[in-house]
């Protein structure tokens, strides 16, 4: 059986900088896979390659058997892939409903003549788009006003709208880029539950996330990147005991111990390009200490 998403030996270089350096992983139907790694490890770059925003230097990306490596983002989306962005990117001045209607663009059958003449098909498709927007906003649990502009919503609600927009596309594969960033404890718990409900619809999910509690709780498989390279791929339990992963997050033995748990884990992991948030240090300690899972609450609380 072939995988829904097959990333094979993906390379992406910006000049001399290798953002992604030989990444391979697969995602199957209705599977939740997390991609983790220190900041600058190449997670978002890999996402951008898969969705067509960056053109891979070499390697192949296949979605349900079709090669999408050289396709533009809209063509990748047309093959059943939806995504959210690391920094929420809604259509700020447009009503919330319109934002979600964007998801219907690919499958709503309406042409210029329907629009100009207001044919029955125009009326029907417009109502379908509106119903669809409400349906997914209900699904993600948006409580706020839906007729006002999206930028007027609080941050957590904007994240929900972005997910609703991606779902209205009816994707087979959903890529979520740090969906928990900036959410409070309760919102994270709701997100966890939402991700599971999305999977239950039969949608495969690839998740980039720094919140280890969430990752360990929700993922069936975890792919760990460092320096654009895949250093581990396995179940959450296996990954958290993997020596290579522990080393990537904590640094190797010959480095000063003081650096591992403090405010500069980026230095310890050799990342050196972008500063890592201090939170990572806390998570790292917990990931490495071999504690069993079930730390979601404490993790989320620490981040809130």
């Amino acid at each position: 059986m072939s995988a829904l998403l097959d990333v094979a030996d993906l390379h992406l270089a910006f000049g001399g900088v290798k953002a992604v350096d030989g990444l391979s992983f697969q995602v199957h139907e209705a599977e939740i896979v997390s991609v983790i790694g220190p900041n600058g490890a190449g997670k978002t770059s890999a996402f951008n390659c898969i969705t067509g925003f960056y053109r891979a230097t070499s390697g192949a990306i296949t979605i349900a058997g079709t090669d999408v490596t050289r396709l533009r983002p809209s063509a990748v989306a047309a093959r059943g892939v939806s995504r959210t962005f690391q920094n929420v990117r809604l259509f700020g001045d447009l009503p919330v409903l319109d934002n979600v209607r964007a998801g219907t663009h690919l499958w709503l059958r309406q042409n210029v003549f329907d629009a100009l003449l207001h044919t029955p098909r125009y009326r029907r498709t417009e109502q379908v788009a509106t119903d669809e927007a409400h349906r997914w906003l209900d699904f993600v649990g948006l409580r706020a006003d839906r007729t006002g502009p999206a930028r007027a919503l609080p941050y957590g609600e904007q994240r929900r709208v972005e997910i609703a927009r991606a779902l209205a596309r009816h994707p087979k594969l959903l890529l979520l880029d740090e969906p928990a960033a900036g959410l409070n404890h309760n919102e994270k718990l709701e997100l966890l539950e939402l991700i599971r409900r999305i999977r239950d619809l039969g949608i495969a999910i690839v998740l980039i996330e720094h919140d280890m509690g969430l990752v360990m709780e929700v993922s069936q498989r975890v792919v760990v990147l460092n320096f654009g390279r895949e250093i581990a791929d396995g179940s959450p339990e296996a990954v958290r005991r993997d020596p290579a992963v522990i080393e990537a997050y904590l640094g190797s033995d010959d480095e000063p111990a003081a650096e591992t748990g403090d405010h500069e884990p980026a230095t310890a992991t050799g990342d050196g390009e972008r500063p890592t948030e201090t939170r990572d240090g806390e998570r790292v300690a917990e990931t490495g200490d071999g504690e069993p899972s079930g730390e979601i609450d404490r993790e989320a609380g620490a981040d809130a």
């Binding site: 983002p73 989306a77 939806s82 962005f85 259509f91 001045d93 964007a102």
Partner: peptide, 10 residues
């Protein structure tokens, strides 16, 4: 509003 987000939605 956002050309990249539009492209991502197909």
């Amino acid at each position: 509003e956002d050309e990249d987000a539009a492209e991502a939605m197909g």
